[in-house]
Structures are given as structure tokens and as C-alpha cells.
Amino acid sequence: MLKDLLTPETANVFVGKLGDMLEKAIGKPLGYAINWGRIWSLWPVHIETACCSVEFGAASSPRYDVERFGIIEAFGSLRQCDLIVVQGTITRKMAPRLRLVYDQMPEPKYVIAMGACAITGGLYFDSYNVLPGIDGILPVDVYVPGCPPRPETLIQGCLLLQEKIKRMKARTIV
């Protein structure tokens, strides 16, 4: 009987069911493990877009030392990064480049909008060359307000992102 059922057409169904069962059984711990790996390797792309990058630099200074959380280590090529911290104003000239950088990053990827400019346009809300916030072009995970945000605020934003990733479904992003 099993043989009758196992036609090539139905085989897919069976395999799918098997996958579902497997996921039910080990999905949760596996997802947890995957997420755990992800939260300790949040490495940002080195793209500086405006003046907030000064405080971004200060966050890795010895006083704040954000790298002790294993997160913002400004290092490496964008193919190895999974976090993009948008450091301030995105002008109309920069916007296509920012999107290009984002598209080149491998999945999964997270976005932090740092500074009032990246959130709503900030001081430059009425400028002719500034985007009113980056949510139009990138899916933002965490907003870090301030003009510029203090390094502590940035660190807290990153910790919030870790918190968020912990609760995400790991498989849906892969």
C-alpha cells in the first residue's frame, strides 16, 4: 500500500511532511542555535554616509568599546557582513549606492538607522537633496534616535537588535 502511495507525484508531499515533522521536532532548538550564532557576528558594512559616523567611530573607542559585545567590528568586505548601520543623512546621490550595497550583502541582513537624518530626514527635512528617512529604500530593523546619537545609544540599539534576532524565526530569513 505504501508502494502505491509513493508515486513520484506524492513523494514530494511525503518529503514535505517529513520536513515539517523534523522542523517541529528540532526546529526550535536549531533555530535558537542559528540565531545565537547570528547575534554574535553582527558585523557592519563600512559605509559612512554623513556626520553620524563620528560617533560611530567613537563607539569603538576604548571608552565605549562596542566590540566587547562582539558586535560592531568595523571590518571586512561587504560580502561577509550582515549588518548595515546607516550613519546619518542619505542624499539623493547616495541612495542608489546604499541600495546597491544592501543588495550585494548576503542574507540574512539587518539594518540599523542611526541618527535623526536616517529616520526622518532630521534637520534636513526640507532639503532638496535629502531623503526623508531611509525606510523608503531599506527595511529598517532598529531606529537609533539622536543627532548624533551618543555611543551608548548606538550600543543599546545594537543590543536591541540582538534581542530582536533572538525572537525571530530563524528559518524564515534563510
Binding site: 554616509t49 554623513a50 543623512t89 546621490k93 547616495m94 534637520l123 534636513y124 526640507d126 532639503s127 535629502v130
Partner: peptide
């Protein structure tokens, strides 16, 4: 020009005091 934010244009719309936080950006 990747950070050209039009400070000079916007300064024409703000008075001498409100220009202060702007121009230091």
C-alpha cells in the same frame, strides 16, 4: 557630493538664530 545636503539653500529659509545648529552639522 555624496553628502551634499543643501545647507546654503536652507540657510536662506531660517533666521539668524535658527541657523546656528544647522551650520555646525
Amino acid at each position: 557630493g555624496y553628502v551634499h545636503r543643501g545647507e546654503e539653500k536652507m540657510a536662506e529659509y531660517r533666521n539668524y538664530i535658527t541657523n546656528i545648529p544647522h551650520l555646525e552639522r
